[in-house]
Structures are given as C-alpha cells and as structure tokens.
C-alpha cells in the first residue's frame, strides 16, 4: 500500500452496521443510550445478536429488554498491526469479547483506557460510539 496516500483526510470511515428489519430496537436503544437485547419469554433470557427466533428453543414470540450494560472481559487482544484502513489511526486498539452479567457475549472494542490496562475478567460497562448517523455499543472499564 502507498503510505503517502493515507493522509488523514483520506482515512475511510469505520464500518457502519447494516440494520436488519428484526434488529431495529437494538439500534433504537443505542440511540437512546440503552443496551436493548432480544428476550425470549419461554427461556426467560436475553440473547445476542438479534435473530428471528430464539436460538435456544426456536420460539418466535420475542420481546426486548434493556440490560445492565455491565459485564467482564472474556478475552481480548491488543492490535498492533491491522489490515483495515479505517482502524490505522487507532493503532494500537483493543479487540475484545465481553460477557454481559446477563450471559450473552458480544464483540467490542475496549475504549477510554490505556490498551495496557485491559485484562481478562476486568469489569466493563457499555458506552456508545457514533458511526455515521447511528450509534454502536462499545465497552469501557467500569468507572
């Protein structure tokens, strides 16, 4: 890649998630500053990511629930080299899988902290990052 072409003006925007029709409340929640997950009334449990049925019991009668947004780092990596043009400015960044108190795991970045401060099992909480005209869930150390 021609490094000179990567002036700050030409850095592409980070990916903006596509909103599927059955995931609307998740993204509406993010816009309101709430982590809102699909909830199965039969299993009495939330799951992630939004699907047309509950992956535990196939129930299609689903509702939505605002969850605590708190959890722990399940695993992580500090990224020093990335093939993704939109993430070059962020290097080094943290890619992590977090486990919510309610159970489901989510892919996320750990933001608003030094990358060396991140560890497995560290308590984290949700925060929201703007991507274009929408917001996406991100996680930061619990304050």
């Amino acid at each position: 890649m021609d490094e000179n072409s990567q002036s700050s003006a030409s850095i592409p925007a980070k990916p903006q998630p596509k909103i599927t029709p059955w995931a609307g409340p998740l993204w509406q929640g993010c816009a309101e500053g709430k982590l809102r997950l699909p909830y199965c009334n039969q299993c009495e449990a939330c799951f992630y990511y939004p699907r047309l049925w509950c992956p535990q019991c196939f129930n299609q009668g689903l509702s939505w629930q605002d969850v605590s947004g708190k959890g722990k780092v399940y695993s992580f990596s500090v990224i020093h080299q990335s093939p993704l043009p939109s993430y070059q400015e962020d290097l080094p960044y943290v890619l992590a899988v977090i486990e919510l108190t309610e159970g489901p795991r989510m892919m996320t970045n750990i933001i608003n902290c030094e990358v060396d401060a991140v560890s497995v099992d560290m308590p984290v909480e949700v925060t929201f990052e703007a991507r274009g005209d929408m917001k996406i869930p991100q996680f930061q150390p619990t304050i």
């Binding site: 980070k14 990916p15 903006q16 998630p17 596509k18 599927t20 995931a23 992630y48 990511y49 695993s75 992580f76 990596s77 990224i79 990335s82 093939p83 993704l84 939109s86 993430y87 962020d90 960044y93 890619l95 992590a96 899988v97 989510m106 892919m107 996320t108 970045n109 991507r131 996406i136």
Partner: peptide, 18 residues
C-alpha cells in the same frame, strides 16, 4: 459477522488471539 463483529476492526490474527 458483518454487522455484529466487523465494525469493531476484526481480522484473522486478532480473532485467534482471543
């Protein structure tokens, strides 16, 4: 996952590092 993973800067070594 195009929606629930890729927006966070995933690529192969970073995933195996988990």
């Amino acid at each position: 996952h195009e929606i629930y993973e890729f927006p966070y800067g995933t690529f192969i070594p970073a995933i195996y590092a988990q």
